[in-house]
């Protein structure tokens, strides 16, 4: 009796770890559409993002740019899928993707629907760190999916926002001018 108990405990312990790594719905969706001729897709591995962001950071001129590229380094993997002239994604697949990620502990941040276009933004986080991000733009004749694995800490995002705000305050002389309507 002890052995199954031990196994159950181990299974329960490992469950959150595996849940953190799963994006089965996104992978299924990506695999289904990535081979279509009209689909542009690219997967950027973490080491390439790190390398690119590292080079860009060394060339950056302002502290805000450096902080932004430092944040880009926290992206472990990026997947892009773009359909420019035809949206091949069926409403059924789109809804299945959304319900799939929701069942994998992704949480909705915002959704917009206007004139037949839909924008959905989901994240999955754990202990104040954003682990996954999913942005979907679904229009009648185009489709964009950005899926990212990250280890972005909320405090790092706050730091970047604070730096950007400081930069704005330093440049207070730049005031937007609203032209009077004719």
């Amino acid at each position: 009796m002890r052995f199954p108990l031990f196994l159950s405990a181990l299974f329960l312990l490992l469950l959150p770890l595996t849940a953190g790594a799963q994006t089965k719905s996104i992978n299924q969706f990506y695999r289904k559409y990535k081979h279509s001729e009209e689909v542009f897709n690219i997967t950027v591995p973490g080491w390439l993002i790190k390398l690119g962001a590292g080079i860009a950071k060394s060339q950056a001129e302002t502290p805000e740019e450096r902080a932004a590229f430092q944040m880009v380094k926290k992206f472990k993997k990026l997947k892009f899928m773009v359909m420019e002239d035809h949206n091949l994604v069926t409403p059924r697949d789109y809804n299945r993707l959304i319900s799939g990620v929701q069942s994998e502990s992704f949480e909705e941040l915002l959704s917009v629907r206007s004139d037949g276009a839909r924008i959905n933004f989901y994240i999955r986080d754990k202990q104040e760190t954003i682990k996954n991000m999913l942005i979907l733009v679904h229009e009648a004749d185009s489709f964009i999916m950005v899926s990212a694995k990250t280890k972005l800490k909320l405090e790092e995002i706050a730091d970047l926002v604070n730096q950007a705000l400081d930069g704005d305050l330093d440049n207070e002389e730049i005031v937007p001018v609203i032209k009077p309507q004719a």
Binding site: E107, E108, L109, L110, S111, V112, R113, S114, D115, G116, I123, E128, L154, E155, I157, A158, V161, N162, L165, D166, L169
Partner: peptide
Amino acid sequence: YLDDDRFTVVYISPKMFQLFDKMDLNLDD
């Protein structure tokens, strides 16, 4: 009216506001 094409729909979830709440932003303004 969520899926009604006559409407523009915007929804910002509690999660987004929770994230704002957790971020320690220094706003001088």
